[in-house]
């Protein structure tokens, strides 16, 4: 139940941000699906490899980046449009908030724990985006037969 609710809210959150960043037309929906897929991968990784949030964050951003790169080529739109909105649910806002709350309350032990979590989660998410972008573009340059298609800026 909680998982379903999270999937739904991740989707709505990504949709909201797509609109706040002034996305127009059908791309708004595709951006929202990105948020949903990313969180689905997070939950899926939890089922497959046990509850490790860092692996989940990595899996989520791998999934999201593959989706965004594919959509960018299909829709002939910059990757940013799909990637950025879908990545919003993966931003560790809650951990950051708690870290600062413990810091101001003088609870250094918990501050360390929460800020390390926020930092590592952000790092694993960025690692996922990077690794996937590089590998995807490498593969794409082999797949795209047409030289013009290859050079096209996405």
């Amino acid at each position: 139940m909680r998982e379903l609710l999270q999937l739904l809210t991740a989707c709505i959150g990504a949709l909201g941000f797509a609109l706040l960043y002034n996305t127009r037309g059908i791309n708004v929906l595709f951006a929202a699906v990105g948020g949903l897929l990313g969180w689905a991968a997070f939950l899926g990784a939890g089922v497959l490899w046990g509850p490790n949030d860092y692996i989940g964050g990595f899996a989520a951003s791998v999934m999201l980046t593959v989706y965004a790169e594919c959509m960018a080529r299909i829709r002939k739109t910059p990757v940013t449009v799909f990637l950025v909105c879908g990545a919003i649910p993966l931003v560790p806002g809650a951990a950051l908030y708690r870290a600062m709350k413990y810091l101001t309350a003088g609870n250094i032990q918990m501050f360390r724990e929460q800020s390390a979590y926020a930092l590592l989660f952000a790092a694993s998410m960025s690692a996922g985006i990077m690794v996937t972008t590089i590998i995807f573009r490498l593969c794409w340059s082999f797949i795209a037969k047409d030289a013009k298609e290859k050079r096209r800026r996405i």
Binding site: L5, Q6, T9, A10, I12, G13, G16, F17, L19, L20, P89, G93, A94
Partner: peptide, 13 residues
């Protein structure tokens, strides 16, 4: 939209 996004992430977390 601010309301929708806040509401969504409140439930999300």
């Amino acid at each position: 939209l601010y309301a929708v996004v806040s509401a969504a992430f409140c439930i999300f977390f």
